[in-house]
């Protein structure tokens, strides 16, 4: 018994260390000086200077990338959640034809390889004059996050007691009123969960951002980080600084809302 406990604790510690260590090392690098980054043996405790943060803001326009990412990910989250509330409600609680087909079609979209739609999406956006514009990136992001949003919200809506609509109708509530006055407030944790997942997706996405935002003034943080180039050497310190800034909000979300995220991810996949 005692042996198995030691084994279990050891395995747990190892999983935690392996999960965190690579990123901790990168965040550590962002606090070093130019000299410390390249030193052998590596410096474990950095001098804690913020030089690389300053430099990535001054020389690499980091704040601009952050602003673009916030606009794109924020708008995507808002639009996807609004549309997913409507669709998820209908699929979870209303009588409707072809429900299975609609759910299946949405699930299929979540599995589409991006390359299969990239060319045509690019041409549609070009036709609309939406290349290098926020709406040009928001449109495909909404498309690709809708399945996740609808599945998660539908699974939360389904769990509310069935009598809610009847009670609301007796009190004279219309359909839309019932949805926004009663169902959405009661399923607020679900709405919040879906919003976190959609935001993380849109904040992290790289492929479409790379295709659609070819002008630097519109590029998002992942594109910026991927394309950081120094004049002679790789600017590792600046890359690490920008990466840390891109990741810390997500790490905070994960530590604050771990339960919700776990539930949301498995709700989308298993229960449906």
């Amino acid at each position: 018994m005692r042996f198995s406990r030691v084994l279990f604790t050891g395995a747990t510690v190892m999983v935690v260390v392996l999960s965190l260590l690579p990123f901790v090392w990168f965040a550590d690098t962002s606090l070093k000086t130019e000299k410390e980054v390249t030193s052998i043996p590596p410096v474990l405790l950095p001098s804690g200077t913020l030089d690389f943060y300053r430099s990535s803001i001054e020389h690499y326009d980091l704040l601009h990338f952050i602003k673009n990412s916030l606009i794109v990910a924020g708008s995507t989250t808002f639009i996807t959640i609004m549309l997913a509330i409507l669709a998820g409600y209908a699929l979870a609680r209303l009588r409707m034809r072809y429900k299975g087909v609609v759910m299946g079609a949405l699930l299929a979209v979540s599995m589409f390889p991006q390359i299969s739609i990239a060319g045509p999406v690019w041409r549609i956006l070009q036709h609309l004059g939406w290349l290098n514009s926020y709406q040009g990136l928001i449109a495909p992001y909404v498309t690709l996050t809708l399945p996740l949003g609808v599945w998660v919200l539908a699974s939360f809506f389904r769990e509310l007691p069935a009598e809610l609509e009847d009670a609301a109708r007796i009190d004279g509530c219309g359909h839309l009123q019932t949805l926004f006055r009663i169902i959405v407030p009661l399923a607020a944790p679900g709405v919040f969960t879906a919003a976190i997942l959609v935001f993380i997706y849109a904040w992290n996405e790289f492929f479409f951002a790379l295709l659609i935002m070819t002008r630097q003034s519109y590029q998002t943080l992942p594109v910026g980080i991927a394309l950081f180039q120094g004049q002679y050497t790789m600017p590792w310190g600046e890359i690490a600084a920008a990466s840390t800034i891109a990741t810390v909000p997500l790490v905070l979300l994960v530590f604050l809302f771990q339960k919700r995220i776990v539930r949301g991810l498995s709700a989308g996949a298993i229960k449906g």
């Binding site: 999983v15 935690v16 999960s19 790289f206 991927a226 990466s243 891109a246 994960v254 530590f255 776990v262």
Partner: peptide, 18 residues
């Protein structure tokens, strides 16, 4: 559980550079 979720949450571009 939160620690295990960190690799999942990190942007792929960031983990690639890392």
């Amino acid at each position: 559980r939160a620690a295990v979720l960190v690799p999942w949450a990190i942007p792929t571009v960031v983990s690639s550079q890392m």
